[in-house]
Design a protein around this nucleic acid. Structure first.
Lengths: 245, 245
DNA sequence: GAGTGGTCTAGACCACCCG
DNA sequence: GGGTGGTCTAGACCACTCG
């Protein structure tokens, strides 16, 4: 009997979810093996069945377990990291892999929005936007050129910040400090030739392949908070994403 | 009073979800506007509050509405199509955009799995895999070369099918007909130069940029069912994905 | 038929936000 | 304080799967 009681403000379904996750990780339930039924878990944890279900639902979304109606709940096979399909930033994901990363801000300016950028940010053409051009390095090799655009109206005071501070944290961290909850980003990806300007910045051939990326990031109420163009060295940069049905 | 009663086997929360979606689409609740509270909706639909919540939860996952604890539920701003972050296939998504697509199978063979493919498919090196090499066209222009590998053990009888049939439906449709529920796919993307073989098939320069993609597709129990290499013409192909937090 | 997950109820109390 | 969403209960019946 592992009876859980509400305490410390942590919801019961979270405790149950984490307890199950832990037991799976420790191999108490092996891959492909059936978990106890929802009724059994409800008794084991001393909660109602709905509460158990709420915890299990999260694990299903993660792909850690799966259900078969009328059969049971089972531990799924691979523990594939969904991290790369999540909104994670350059610093987080590179650091996790033990890569040294750094960034250098080349330009920070306020300009009137061109048509495309205005459309992406849901503002009027000519409205002020903050443009931040950044060169990013991994292990001191220049890998990526970023052109970020954020609505001046929402984030004007960002301009008062020290460039060094901006270089050392991701823009998203800063945008969130303004009370926007970043929820999703839409990325468009293409392969292109570098072209002169990018080739020079990245120190590669003019016709070298570049992974070109456009991205619009949205807060959870749907407000677009950032639009970027992003040019990544083809031979140094790859991107992993997870698609879900 | 729009009271819903259980009928036709459609769950109440699904009816409520679709009813809300429809009302939002018709503009009865406008962007940024507050929906009725959960209590009010429960009364309106003649159901319990938990049932209303279950319906709303789906709309939140879609990004159609968002919630603020202690404040209310609101209609989110853009109706951004998450389609491209979903597991959708070549035929579906291109057809939706009115593009004529076709495919030609160049090779279908059974070969022993090389190390990388075996690792991705969770089988032993040397185990049999079915290799299907396909050239895909949009509007009669060759755009993509596919090298798909699927475990022979799971799908051996696919070899008995007519090539013409295989060309005209997506592999995933076929894999699902074997009882596997495709749930997620992990893709790795790079920009590369075409190289001789691909350049010739796609009728482009040897050093033209290619959007290179590796993808592993998994059933919901975690079984890998397909691994592919994919070479896409940089100037004709772009990929849109949505990242979620 | 027995066991499982899927849906649903009619309440309850809490945490959060606002004026 | 009043309204909102967040969590939770102790049941119920249904739909599905399997032996």
């Amino acid at each position: 009997m592992t009876s859980f009681t509400k305490a410390e403000g942590i919801p019961l379904y979270v405790k149950i979810r984490e307890n199950l996750r832990e037991e799976i990780k420790l191999g108490e339930y092996k891959q492909g093996e059936k978990l106890p039924s929802e009724d059994e878990l409800a008794i084991k944890y001393g909660v109602s069945r709905m509460t158990v279900r709420q915890g299990i639902m999260d694990l299903i979304d993660e792909g850690l377990v799966y259900r078969r109606h009328g059969v049971g709940t089972f531990v799924a096979f691979p523990h594939l990291e969904r991290d790369h399909s999540r909104l994670t930033n350059f610093f987080e994901s590179a650091l996790k892999e033990g890569i040294k990363v750094s960034a250098q801000i080349l330009t920070m300016e306020v300009i009137p929005a061109k048509q495309k950028i205005a459309a992406e940010l849901h503002i009027e053409e000519g409205d002020s936007v903050i443009h931040i051009k950044t060169l990013r390095y991994t292990d001191d090799v220049p890998v990526t050129v970023h052109d970020a655009f954020i609505p001046h109206k929402l984030f004007a005071s960002i301009l008062t910040r020290d460039l060094k501070t901006l270089e050392n944290q991701h823009l998203w961290t800063i945008l969130e400090s303004y009370g926007y909850r970043l929820k999703r980003a839409v990325q468009r990806l293409e392969a292109r030739e570098a072209g002169e300007e990018i080739a020079e910045l990245l120190n590669i051939d003019t016709n070298a392949p570049i992974l070109y990326k456009e991205r619009t990031a949205y807060a959870d109420d749907g407000t677009p908070v950032e639009f970027i163009f992003c040019y990544n060295r083809g031979d140094m940069y790859s991107l992993t994403v997870t698609l879900e049905r």
